[in-house]
């Protein structure tokens, strides 16, 4: 369409009041549409989207704050009970730690007047998983622990009670207590060692 004819038409439209009304109405409508379409609508949708995102992030932040508070509480509790934690690690160690157990058993025997003759550690005979036996999820491992000792009747009772009270758990499987042979007792230095204790137990640790 030739250029002149377009401006002629526009001029023709704007000549009359009716044409001017048309033009202003069209212009206003266009401005309003542009304002709504390119201004208000995108901004509002962006506001709603960011608000939703903020709400989700705020939830995450709140849960993180709760977690942080819980952890801080646990850390402070752990710090206050550090001695208990260390005792727990000693009672349920990561390794077998036979030396510590031997020392504790020897001390206990000395306290109860027992003379230890033998102590040995062997593989566990049981084929049942310890995890099932004790209903735990950790990699619980164990060793069989055997010992033989001489002592008095009350001494042996005290020793067994002591072994069962040790923080390092010795799960006694078999216990045999009997009076020793008379020939053995006739030898010197056997006073207070008239009885013999044979003990088989299990000790445990969490393998890492």
């Amino acid at each position: 369409m030739p250029r002149g004819s377009i401006s002629a038409r526009i001029n023709k439209i704007l000549e009359t009041k009716q044409g001017q009304a048309y033009a202003v109405a069209a212009g206003t409508a266009a401005v309003v549409i542009v304002l709504i379409g390119f201004g208000i609508f995108p901004i509002l949708s962006s506001i709603f989207f960011v608000s939703e995102q903020n709400a989700i992030k705020q939830q995450v932040l709140d849960s993180m704050t709760v977690k942080e508070q819980n952890l801080r509480g646990l850390v402070s509790k752990e710090f206050n009970n550090r001695a208990v934690t260390l005792a727990l690690k000693a009672a349920m160690p990561d390794q077998l730690e036979q030396a510590v157990l031997i020392e504790k058993v020897t001390n206990l025997a000395a306290l109860t007047g027992l003379q230890i003759n033998l102590m040995s550690f062997t593989e566990l005979e049981t084929k049942i998983e310890l995890r099932e036996t004790f209903d735990v999820s950790a990699n619980l491992q164990g060793k069989s622990f055997s010992m033989s000792a001489y002592g008095s009747r009350s001494g042996i009772e005290g020793f067994v009670t002591g072994v069962e009270s040790m923080h390092r758990v010795v799960n006694i499987q078999t216990l045999t207590v009997g009076r020793r042979d008379d020939e053995d007792l006739q030898q010197g230095g056997q006073l207070g060692k008239e009885y013999k204790l044979d003990l088989q137990g299990e000790i445990y640790f969490i393998a890492k």
């Binding site: 752990e78 349920m92 004790f134 619980l140 009772e157 067994v160 009670t161 069962e164 799960n171 207590v177």
Partner: peptide, 25 residues
Amino acid sequence: LRDIQQRAGVYRNVWEFSNSFSSIL
């Protein structure tokens, strides 16, 4: 902390499920 928690749980079970013969003896 998780290690302590797990260790405590294991220890509790091992302790409570282990045999105790002294009173019978």
